[in-house]
Design a binder for these strands. Structure first.
Lengths: 205, 205
DNA sequence: GTCTATACTGAGATAGAC
DNA sequence: GTCTATCTCAGTATAGAC
C-alpha cells in the first residue's frame, strides 16, 4: 500500500468523525492530508469508497471482538439461560475498549449508525452483527415474540448511536473518551431493563 | 402569506421527510412546487430557514399537545407519585396522533432527531420540550441522580428517533403510519422499563 | 503505476432586470 | 414579487506528466 493512500486515511477518519460523512468535503480531507484531490479518487474511487476504506481498517477488529465475547458468554452459559446483560456486554464492551486508542473511529461508527441516509458501504458491516446478536437475544429472551425483539433491537441501536455521538447536540457536554465510557456504563442497565420488559399487549388494529 | 410561499411548503416537507434534510436539494423541491429557485431564497432566505418554515407550521401544535397531556397527567397524579408511563405517554401520544394526518411531518421530525449535523433551527423547538419532560421525570424518578437521568433522556431520544425513521435502514419494513403506531406501542414499555431501572453502581475512574 | 492539473456537473446563494 | 444570470464550492472524471 502506497504512502499516499496511508496519508489519506487518518485525516479522513478524523474529519468524518468530527463533521459527519455527508457534511465532510473531500477538499477538507486533502487539505489535512497534503495530497491532491484526484489522489483520493485514484486510490479509493469515490467518497463512499473512501469511507469504506476508513471503516475497513478497524471494523473487523471491533466486530470480531464482539463475536468473540458473545461466543465466550454463550459457552459460559452452557445449556443454561443466557443473560441479556451478557449479550449487551459483548456488544458494548468493544466500544469502550476501542474509544481510548481510536476515539475518532468510535465516534464515526456512532454517527453512521444515526445517519438516515447512510451509504451501502456501512450497512454491510453492521447487518451481520445485528443478525448475530438478534439470534443471541432470542435465546436470552425466549418469551419475546420475534417481531417485538426486532423492534427492540432498533430501540437499542438508536440509543447506542445517540449515546456515542449525540451528546454534542442534546447536552453541552462533549464526547471525551472518559465521558463516553461512563455513558455506556449507564446505557447497559437501561437497555437490559428495556429488553427484559414484558411485551406489550397484542392488539390488532 | 403569498400563494408562492404556500406552494413551496408542502413539497419541501415531503421531500425533506423522504430524503432527509442534508440529502435534499432545493432544485428537487422547486421541481415539485413549480416555482423558481430564487423564490425560495426570497421567501425564506436559505435552505435552513425553509426547514424552519416547514417545522413552524406544525411543531407548535405537537409540542402544545405534549405539554397539555403532561400537565393533565400531573394534575391527575396530584400530590401522589407521577408514573413514568404517563410521562412517556405525553411525549409519544402526539406522535401517534399526528402520523395519520401528517405522516411527512412526523417522519421529518424523526429524521432530524437522528441527524448529527442538525441545524440550529431544529434545536430551538426540541430543547424546551426536553427540559420540561426532564423535570417531569425528575418527579417520577426521585431516586435517580440528575446526571443519570440526563443520559437516559438521550437514550430515550435516540430510541424514539430510530423508531420513527430508522426502519428503512435496519429492517426491510417500511414506515407506514399503521406500522409506526405499532412500533411506538412497543417502544413505550421498553423505555419505561429502561428509565425505571436502578442506577448503575457509581464508580470514579 | 502514481500523481497532478484541469474541467465538468450540480449544489446553495445572490445581484439586478422586470 | 418574480425570474434570469452568475458566483462559489461540492463530488467526479479524465488527460497526461513522471
Amino acid at each position: 500500500m502506497t504512502d499516499t493512500k496511508q496519508k489519506i486515511l487518518d485525516p479522513a477518519e478524523r474529519v468524518f468523525a468530527q463533521q459527519g460523512y455527508a457534511a465532510t468535503s473531500l477538499r477538507q480531507i486533502i487539505a489535512q492530508a497534503g495530497v491532491n484531490l484526484a489522489a483520493i479518487h485514484y486510490h479509493f474511487g469515490s467518497k463512499e469508497e473512501l469511507l469504506d476504506g476508513v471503516l475497513l481498517r478497524k471494523v473487523t477488529q471491533m466486530n470480531d471482538r464482539r463475536l468473540g465475547l458473545l461466543a465466550a458468554h454463550e459457552a459460559e452459559a452452557g445449556a443454561g439461560r443466557l443473560e441479556v446483560e451478557k449479550v449487551l456486554d459483548a456488544f458494548l464492551t468493544p466500544i469502550v475498549e476501542m474509544v481510548g486508542e481510536h476515539p475518532d473511529f468510535v465516534r464515526l461508527m456512532g454517527r453512521l449508525m444515526a445517519e438516515s441516509e447512510l451509504p451501502e458501504a456501512v450497512l454491510k458491516y453492521f447487518q451481520p452483527i445485528l443478525d448475530r446478536f438478534t439470534a443471541a437475544l432470542t435465546r436470552a429472551l425466549p418469551d419475546l415474540p420475534p417481531a417485538e425483539l426486532a423492534w427492540r433491537m432498533q430501540f437499542v441501536m438508536g440509543a447506542v448511536a445517540q449515546t456515542i455521538c449525540g451528546s454534542a447536540v442534546w447536552t453541552p457536554e462533549h464526547t471525551s473518551p472518559a465521558g463516553l465510557r461512563g455513558r455506556i456504563r449507564s446505557l447497559a442497565p437501561f437497555l437490559a431493563a428495556g429488553l427484559s420488559a414484558p411485551p406489550p399487549a397484542t392488539r390488532e388494529d
